[in-house]
Design a protein around this nucleic acid. Structure first.
Lengths: 354, 354
DNA sequence: CGACTTTTTGTAATCGATTACATCTTGAGG
DNA sequence: CCTCAAGATGTAATCGATTACAAAAAGTCG
């Protein structure tokens, strides 16, 4: 045995079942897909043959004939982001119920990986796409939309009116974050960015700036550290923070991971949280509750977003009448936990107005 | 437009390209798959036609003809386990390089979800399977092996000599964990289990018991809390722990998530870690370093395990000569961090022998 | 019982590629 | 210039299901 052959030992086709049951392949097919069209007696006969032979239809052949694959592609910016896992759970629960499979696409924060998924769409290996990426994957001049497949954007809105979005109120939340800090007496604000080209980043920063302005402060009261939606960005921001003479006392991070990176790093340098610096994150991933002190953050309904996005996609794939492009905005909740408190200069004599 | 139709606007088949280039479909196919068999001039002609028409081969049709789908199923016990995300990264990097796609199967700790993935295998929608589940998925009397596909087990060994395993030295590590605790002077040991039926759980507990015995202690010095590989198990174990009169001072958890659950819960009850209780986890997930104090734990090379498993599967799928069943055991590293210290009764006067 | 409708079943085309085999080109060598 | 082998291309079968259409069977009713 030099070359191991990997195929099913018993390789039973629909024709075999038909012969076994003494009917035509058409009848077998009908029994399996639409039994009402077949007489009960024949149905039993065929089912018996199916059972005895252990026949399972070849989905590859079905796919070709029916022009569907019952597979959906989910493209994520990075697999190890806990937000992704939660959203994927919701997506999986919804799609699995309807018989769809999930193919994961991992960009790992590298745009060079996009072409592969464009090709997947173009080659008709999938019936629909869920994007968590904030933009439509491209391959040179071609992009995924050209495949003509239904696409739904989740988590990160896409600036394309033809694509339904399931997103949170990024801008409003960021604005609220600052307002919360202002109420606590902070006067100098730090912002830890996500990937600058990402739309959610743009939105969150816009909201942040709005909040600062609404509080009566100006651009000069802001320090902004650029990065990506990763832990390391928080670490880098913290290092920059520590080098400052005039440090912000209220910091908002565009995601929990970088918020945690920031907290851990400044703590290691002897900064006390929240006494010296208040930090607000964004996402509400599980870990944010495990650090010390637990992170004040906005909780996204990740699982529900996954389900909502999947439902919209299912509707589109089933060719439902498109009654406008759905644009779902999910609610956010500020989890007031341990990383925020009144600004240090006013720690005495001031009350927190929650 | 009552029913939106979702298919490619321009629907170009190989015959169209052939006509455009003035050749037969066979030639087009050859140019695309094995250009050396075609004259350079013809090749250029065809490629030009492909470019102009924007043709992409229909993978569904290719699949049927070639009897391969270039898709691999990865079955995970639970999506939100960070170990899974890391392993999946490794798997993805390896498989993507070879043109394979990944279909994720999420059992969400429920065996009822297995039949769906058995069906996937039986219906020839995939070319191979990576199991992180510790057992072969079943559907009544049928199981996934019947599909005759190459299967590789990762993270959790499978008790089936025909299936290659990529695992860590669970038993040895668990044993070392206890030995470490013994060296620190602990005399009473707690064990937080994973899913009892899981083989890695069995292995880790066996190693734990071995270590206890090797230290000169007996079964009576052990407290065992049963559960699953989840955070909540650690919480439950902690609650049981707090009710004990005679508490263990050295606790080993079969996974980091439950270790963290335990640490957080006992801390909330006023127990000091590591002064009152030492805790050792298993996995080395990112979060384990973010809690306070950082968790002492064994780090699994998750990404590398993913790659190794994928490579073995690739070999099997490419029909390489099977030179025995590979059984890779990856190294583990004990990360001595903050949750372990000398046993409380001996805190004075004893030195840590590391 | 026969005419006609309805239901059930079978035949064969089809989905879109790959590939065995046949046929036609090309070029080398005499 | 002719012969023959090697190389290039075309024809048509094939993968395994679904399904339009035709044909046959079963039922209905006067």
């Amino acid at each position: 045995m030099s070359r191991q052959r990997w195929h099913s030992v018993k390789d039973i086709r629909i024709a075999d079942v038909a012969r076994l049951a003494g009917v035509s392949t058409a009848t077998v097919s009908r029994v399996l897909s639409d039994p009402d069209k077949v007489r009960q007696k024949t149905c039993d006969l065929v089912m018996e043959a199916v059972r005895r032979s252990g026949y399972t239809p070849d989905r590859t052949a079905q796919n070709l004939r029916t022009r569907r694959t019952m597979n959906v592609l989910v493209v994520a910016p990075r697999l190890t982001n806990p937000v992704f896992a939660q959203v994927l759970r919701g997506v999986d629960d919804e799609l699995t119920r309807c018989g769809y499979g999930i193919i994961v696409g991992n960009l790992d924060n590298q745009r060079e990986r996009e072409p592969r998924y464009v090709a997947l769409a173009l080659s008709r290996q999938i019936d629909g796409v869920l994007l968590l990426t904030g933009h439509v994957p491209q391959d040179g001049d071609r992009n995924m939309k050209e495949a003509g497949l239904p696409i739904v954007a989740m988590c990160a809105a896409i600036d394309d009116p033809s694509i339904p979005n399931v997103v949170v109120q990024d801008r409003e939340a960021a604005r609220q974050a600052v307002e919360y800090l202002v109420r606590l007496g902070h006067r100098r604000f730090g912002y830890i960015s996500g990937t600058p080209t990402s739309i959610i980043e743009v939105e969150r920063y816009a909201g942040f700036v709005e909040g600062v302005a609404a509080g009566g402060f100006s651009q000069r009261d802001i320090v902004r550290w650029e990065g990506a939606f990763v832990f390391a960005t928080g670490v880098a921001a913290a290092e920059a923070f520590l080098r400052l003479k005039k440090r912000p006392t209220g910091v908002f991070a565009a995601c929990d991971e970088s918020a945690i990176g920031f907290v851990k790093t400044v703590q290691a340098a002897g900064i006390r949280i929240p006494q010296d610096v208040s930090v607000i994150g964004f996402d509400g991933i599980e870990v944010s509750d495990y650090i010390e002190p637990p992170l004040t953050t906005f909780r996204q309904p990740m699982y529900d977003m996954g389900r909502a996005g999947a439902q919209i996609l299912l509707n589109m794939m089933q060719g439902e009448a498109a009654t406008g492009i759905p644009n779902v905005r999910m609610p956010l909740r500020l989890l007031e936990r341990g990383t925020t408190s009144v600004a240090p200069s006013r720690a005495r004599g001031l009350k927190v107005v929650a």
